[in-house]
C-alpha cells in the first residue's frame, strides 16, 4: 500500500480483506418457492463490501469516494464497530477491534468518533443542544469540573459556527445545516484521535463548509487527528484529502495520493467520476458517460466488477478480477488495462 510522500508512515487503522453481506431475502417463508415440483430455498444477499483493504495512517485524511450504494457508509460503520464484518478484520493500532463486544469496545469509543450521514437520526430529538454536547464530556472526561465542561461546550459551539445562545433549543428547531454542525461539534468535543466523517459537510452551504473544513484541517494539524472522510464532493477531496480511495461496488478500484489521482486518474471509473464534476460558472465539461446501468450488488458481475460499464473492457476483464497493484508513484489501481497498458 502506498503512503503519503515524505513521511514515515504509522498505520492507525487498517481494514483487511473486508466483506459485508446483507441478507435481503425476507422472512423464511419468502425464501421458499416450488420449482419443478421441488421445494427450493433461495437466499439473496446484497454484497455491499467485497474484499476491501485500507491502511489509514496517523494524521492523514483518507477520502472515500464512489457511486451511491458502493458501500462507503458500510465501510465507515464497520470500522466503527457498528456493523460486524461478514469476513475480514479491522485493526486499531495493534488491536483487532471487530471482534470486541460492547465492553471491550469502550476504550476505543472515545478515540474513535463518527459523524453520520443522516444527522436527523443521530441527534436525540428530546435533548437540547447543550445537553447533547455535555453528555459525551461527562461520560468520557468526568475529571473536568462543571465550569470547565461548560467552557468546552461554548468554545466548540463557537468553532463550528453555532450561536452559543442556541444551547437551549431542540434539534427540530434548526435548519439541516445547523443540525449537521451540532453533530460535528459532538464528535469533536471528546478530543478523539480518529474520526469517520460520512458526508459531514454535504448539507452545509459553501461558507459554512469552508469554516468546518478549516476547523477539521486545523484539528488535523494541531492534534494530529486522522480522518476517514466520505464525500461526494470531489473539490473537497482535492482540497482536504491526503489520499483518496475510489470505490465501485464494494471494491477499491484506485487508491493513491490526491494530487496524483486528480491530475492523472488511471482507472476508467475514476476517469468518468472526475469528468462529472460540475464546474462553477464555467462551461459544461465533457462528461464521460458510462454505458449501461450500475449492476446490482445482489448479482455481482464476474471478473472485474466494472467490466460491464467499461469502455476499454476485453475478454479477460469478464473472467479475472484484477488485483490492486502499484501503478504510479503513489497510486495503486485494480485494472487489467492499466497494468497491461491498453489505453
Amino acid at each position: 500500500m502506498n503512503s503519503t510522500p515524505g513521511q514515515e508512515s504509522e498505520s492507525l487503522v487498517s481494514v483487511r480483506n473486508l466483506y459485508r453481506y446483507f441478507n435481503v431475502s425476507g422472512g423464511w417463508l419468502d425464501q421458499i418457492s416450488i420449482s419443478k415440483g421441488k421445494m427450493v430455498r433461495k437466499v439473496e444477499m446484497v454484497k455491499a463490501l467485497n474484499g476491501i483493504n485500507l491502511e489509514i495512517e496517523k494524521g492523514e485524511a483518507l477520502c472515500l469516494v464512489g457511486e451511491s450504494g458502493c458501500g462507503k457508509t458500510t465501510v465507515g460503520r464497520t470500522v466503527m464497530g457498528l456493523l460486524s464484518p461478514t469476513r475480514g478484520s479491522v485493526h486499531y493500532r495493534e488491536s483487532r477491534i471487530d471482534t470486541l463486544d460492547r465492553k471491550g469496545m469502550l476504550p476505543f469509543r472515545r478515540k474513535m468518533q463518527m459523524i453520520f450521514q443522516n444527522h436527523h437520526a443521530s441527534l436525540n430529538p428530546r435533548k437540547t443542544v447543550a445537553k447533547t454536547l455535555l453528555e459525551p464530556i461527562r461520560f468520557h472526561q468526568p475529571e473536568l469540573s462543571l465550569p470547565e465542561q461548560r467552557d468546552k461546550v461554548a468554545s466548540i459551539m463557537e468553532s463550528v459556527g453555532v450561536d452559543a445562545g442556541w444551547g437551549a433549543r431542540f434539534p427540530h428547531e434548526f435548519s439541516g445545516g445547523q443540525r449537521q454542525r451540532i453533530s460535528i461539534a459532538r464528535a469533536l468535543i471528546v478530543d478523539p484521535e480518529f474520526i469517520v466523517a460520512d458526508e459531514p459537510i454535504s448539507a452545509l452551504d459553501v461558507s459554512i463548509q469552508a469554516q468546518v473544513l478549516n476547523l477539521l484541517m486545523e484539528a488535523r494539524e494541531e492534534r494530529g487527528l486522522t480522518y476517514l472522510f466520505v464525500t461526494h464532493d470531489l473539490s473537497v477531496v482535492e482540497h482536504f484529502g491526503s489520499r483518496v480511495a475510489v470505490m465501485y461496488l464494494g471494491r477499491v478500484c484506485e487508491v493513491g495520493q490526491v494530487g496524483e489521482v486528480f491530475s492523472e486518474p488511471r482507472h476508467p471509473y475514476t476517469q468518468a467520476l472526475l469528468s462529472a464534476i460540475p464546474k462553477v460558472g464555467g462551461e459544461k465539461r465533457r462528461h464521460v458517460k458510462l454505458k449501461g446501468e450500475v449492476p446490482t450488488p445482489i448479482d455481482l458481475p464476474s471478473g472485474c466488477i466494472f467490466h460491464s460499464r467499461c469502455p476499454h473492457a476485453r475478454e479477460i476483464c469478464s473472467k479475472e478480477a484484477p488485483e490492486l497493484v502499484s501503478a504510479g508513484e503513489w497510486t495503486d489501481v485494480a485494472c487489467h488495462g492499466v497494468r497491461e497498458n491498453w489505453f
Binding site: G176, S202, L273, A276
Partner: peptide, 13 residues
Amino acid sequence: DEPTTALDVTIQA
C-alpha cells in the same frame, strides 16, 4: 431541496 446533495457526481450529473 438539495436533491443531489446525497448523490455522487456521476449520478448527480
